[in-house]
Computed example of a mutant assay.
Amino acid sequence: MKKLLLCMLGLVSSLYAAETMSDDLVIIQKPIVFDAKRKALTLQYMQERYNMVQDEPTIKPRMVVVHWTVIPTFEKTFEVFNPPELPAARDGIRSGGDLNVSSQFVIDRDGTIYQLMPETIMARHTIGLNYTAIGIENVADGDSLPMTEAQLDANTRLIRYLAGKYPIEYVLGHSEYHRFRDTKWWKETDANYFTEKNDPDIPFMNRLRSQLKGLSLKPLP
């Protein structure tokens, strides 16, 4: 509870705090700034993009969306996600609002798992689905930095952990989110607000889902 309060108040510690979730899962707490400004921008995003009016920017997780960062290190990724407001360099998605992009988790190339935000606080990572999706970013780009075996293992263990806490129905790659556009899950209010994505590659996602057999996951639409 103390970590959550510190995160929500924006009093971000510079120290890494490791929390052992089970014998084979360690999540390092590294919260990004979530101050009054980020909270207000998140609530505004939810209202404008999803017609959701709430007092708190909470979500009910039903999906996990897997990404890659196209940023070469965790440290640089943290620097990008940390500010509450979208930087000027991201004008291509500014039409979607001033809230900065982020995700609840980032997995480094060696499989180290970092938690940047509480699982039930909305992060901006997937158009149309943020209101119900936990985001997992991986330090990779699919080219000079392909997804690693350590990341495959870490994603598997993390998603199994999340599925044990929440009624997760779908695990998808960012490259697959378009498959939800004509379903009840899609809440984006602007039909023209959409970007093509290629992360992660489909072979990786197929391998990941094969590792998750036994969970009550539904096939993608």
Rank of each mutant, 00 (worst) to 15 (best):
V65C: 15
D91F: 13
P61M: 08
P83C: 05
W68M: 04
D110Q: 01
I127G: 03
L99S: 12
Y131L: 06
V80G: 00
N138M: 15
P118D: 10
G128C: 14
S102K: 04
G135S: 09
T126I: 13
L129R: 11
V101Y: 09
T77S: 09
L86Y: 02
E75S: 09
D98A: 14
R94M: 14
V65R: 01
N82K: 03
T58C: 12
P84D: 09
F78N: 10
E85A: 12
N138A: 09
E85L: 05
L116E: 00
K60P: 01
L116V: 01
L116Q: 00
N100Y: 04
D110K: 02
I113K: 00
R109V: 06
T58K: 15
R62I: 11
V65G: 08
G92L: 11
H67A: 08
T112L: 06
N100C: 08
R94S: 14
T112N: 04
T126V: 15
A123T: 13
E79G: 06
H67Q: 13
P72W: 06
T112R: 13
E119D: 14
V101C: 11
T77V: 07
F105W: 04
F105K: 03
L116H: 01
T73P: 04
A88W: 02
I93H: 02
F74M: 11
S102G: 14
I93V: 13
E79P: 02
P61Y: 06
E75V: 07
V65N: 05
G128P: 11
I134G: 05
N82I: 05
I93T: 13
E79W: 08
E79M: 12
R62C: 03
P72C: 06
T77N: 05
M122W: 03
D91H: 11
R109W: 08
M63F: 15
N130M: 07
F81D: 09
R109K: 14
E85N: 03
R124P: 04
P83V: 07
V101L: 11
I93D: 11
N130Y: 01
Y131I: 07
D91W: 12
R109Y: 05
V65P: 01
F78D: 09
V65A: 09
G135N: 08
A88Y: 07
F81N: 10
A88Q: 12
D98I: 01
A89Y: 07
N138C: 15
F105H: 03
V66Y: 01
I134W: 07
P61I: 03
T58F: 12
